[in-house]
């Protein structure tokens, strides 16, 4: 991934760069970073995507509006960013057809930065996915969207505290109004270029038995496939008996799986005998 090719120059003074934002639309020929937009369904991912790229992905107030991946891009501070809007997903651990697109991209698409869009009014539920993503991804930004709704419902959210607890930057936003979007761009650029280093939260309350089991399996996989990304996650999936991962391990295509881009999942060929 072309992470080295960015201009450094003025990155130290990000405040001046909001004006540098050139909206690129879908010109994908040449990009430096890939940014994935993940999050629970209906948290405003597509709205954030539209605000960042100037495109017009369909949005709607119900879970499951986006079912396929959409791509766009923007450039900022000399770096060119490819942005990928994903279908909403509740969890990386259990998936339906539309969610699989999101899961596969986060795991195997290897985005440079994962932006997790969360609904500020349903924080606890959204943190489930955030924590799962942080388990396996080092570079992440949490976009605390729908702040206007949170205010309307009388909720106050301490984003600094949240950022400290999660170990990644947290940007409050109201994407539909465009509030917080400039800051989001700056922050994700800083994370992408490595100016801000994340120390993502890792699960603390694991039972000893769980931790022992995970560690043992991780060590085993590491000894066999030292270069595999997401070893922890593969271990988790094996412990849960995920048939797809088991199959991938058995046939030895696990290595390919980690490099390959996910295919188009929409077909029903298996049931159409």
């Amino acid at each position: 991934m072309a992470t080295e090719t960015t201009a450094e120059g003025c990155e130290a003074c990000p405040a001046h760069h909001a004006g540098n934002l050139i909206k690129l639309g879908v010109n994908m020929s040449n990009w430096d970073y890939v940014v994935a937009l993940a999050g629970n369904p209906n948290t405003g991912k597509s709205t954030v995507f539209n605000a960042l790229t100037g495109l017009r992905q369909h949005t709607g107030n119900w879970p499951g509006k986006t079912v396929v991946r959409a791509e766009g891009g923007f450039s900022f501070g000399g770096g060119r960013y490819k942005l990928v809007d994903l279908p909403g997903t509740y969890s990386l651990l259990s998936t339906s057809l539309d969610e699989e697109v999101a899961r596969d991209f986060i795991l195997f698409g290897q985005p440079d930065v994962t932006v997790i869009v969360v609904d500020a009014t349903r924080l606890e539920r959204n943190l489930n996915l955030v924590l799962q993503v942080l388990e396996i991804r080092d570079r992440a930004v949490v976009c605390l969207n729908l702040m206007d709704e949170a205010k309307r419902h009388g909720l106050q959210i301490d984003d600094r505290r949240l950022a400290r607890d999660l170990g990644v930057p947290v940007v409050p936003a109201a994407a539909r109004q465009g509030e917080g979007i400039p800051l989001l761009i700056e922050t994700l650029a800083q994370v992408a270029t490595g100016q801000v280093v994340c120390k993502p939260h890792r699960l603390k309350n694991e039972t000893p038995a769980m931790r022992k089991a995970i560690d043992r399996l991780v060590a085993k996989i590491e000894s066999v496939y030292p270069d595999l990304p997401n070893i922890r996650w593969v271990a988790l999936r094996l412990l849960e008996g995920d048939k797809r991962i088991i199959e991938a391990v058995r046939t030895g295509e696990l290595g390919d799986l980690s490099r390959g881009t996910p295919g188009d999942p929409g077909t029903l060929s298996e049931v159409t005998r």
Binding site: Y90, S91, L93, S94, S96, E124, R125, N128
Partner: peptide, 11 residues
Amino acid sequence: GLARRRLMDLG
């Protein structure tokens, strides 16, 4: 199976 996981995903 999936039904159980879904319930837990939802908290």
